[in-house]
Design a protein around this nucleic acid. Structure first.
Lengths: 152, 152
DNA sequence: ATTAATTATATCGTTCACGATGCAAAGATA
DNA sequence: TATCTTTGCATCGTGAACGATATAATTAAT
């Protein structure tokens, strides 16, 4: 039995599990709003800056168009946004929030603190969450560089 | 604009992205073996202890049967394992590795260190990875407790 | 021993992720 | 201007995740 193949020694498994459980913690808050977690991420981007081309959304979320395009199509179907063709470059699709999509921001503004509290509850220190953030950024930036041939 | 709704302030997004990118880092190693990341997790469990009921696998991976059952079916289809009915409790399905599934352990034993090196490369310190592990365990255990009504 | 409740797993439908491929518009080159 | 390449997005197929529901076997209760 190789020690490095034990489940409890896998950082990847911890990341994978933590990510799933945290997403699951958001679910009860999303359900009444009729959105999913990835849709929430798209909304976060657009609330911060509206009228973006698809490429900008994929870039900010580190996702590819084959994930984002269908995601945006469903959100358009649900009346959260519209996708218009750019006038300057008709290959580009400009994504804009509808009134409904913009209005959701108000309803969502308390969600992060609610989930954050759940996380902080059994947490030794707030400092730990700060360090977590820094470490995750290291991992993300490192892997983004190494995988640029895939995303760029 | 609410600060707590900015993408760069979301721990959840970092976890989600880090998890995806790390999984993606494993992909080149899995492809020649013909397995996926979740299938690798199942193999990790079974390499550690063979002949487990489905419930034990779901429990160790923090996944539900509606995810694991199809996963096991695909792995059985690919000849990595077999699912037999328990004699003592015929509701239970005992999952056992085939020769092919057991043999993959040899081929996989160097994967963790390869990916680990990629991670450690742009990492300030090894200590940081240790703290990450601890923090993720805190999050996982805390959320597992809170979400027990869903998984148990 | 029936009936009722619980448990173990399976099925179904929807929504991601993502590799591979396609296609039309824009830009570069000849 | 014709062609060649690149870019931006879309489509397709497969494999997860997961809520909801179903089914058969075990256990508990009457």
């Amino acid at each position: 039995m190789y020690d490095q193949l034990k489940l409890e020694n896998q950082i990847c498994f911890r990341l994978y599990t933590a990510s799933r459980l945290v997403t699951r913690a958001y679910h009860p808050y999303f359900e009444p709003l009729g959105i999913t977690y990835p849709q929430y991420l798209v909304l976060l981007v657009l609330w911060q800056q509206d009228n973006l081309p698809v490429s900008e959304i994929t870039s900010r979320l580190c996702l590819d168009t084959n994930t984002v395009t269908p995601l945006l199509q469903r959100m358009e179907r649900d009346g959260l946004l519209v996708r218009t063709r750019s006038v300057v470059d008709s290959r580009q699709r400009i994504v804009s929030l509808t009134k409904k999509g913009r209005k959701l921001q108000e309803a969502a503004k308390d969600i992060p603190s609610c989930v954050g509290q759940q996380l902080a509850d059994n947490m030794p220190s707030v400092d730990e969450l700060v360090r977590l953030t820094t470490t995750l950024d290291h991992i993300i930036n490192s892997l983004k560089k190494q995988q640029q041939h895939l995303t760029a």
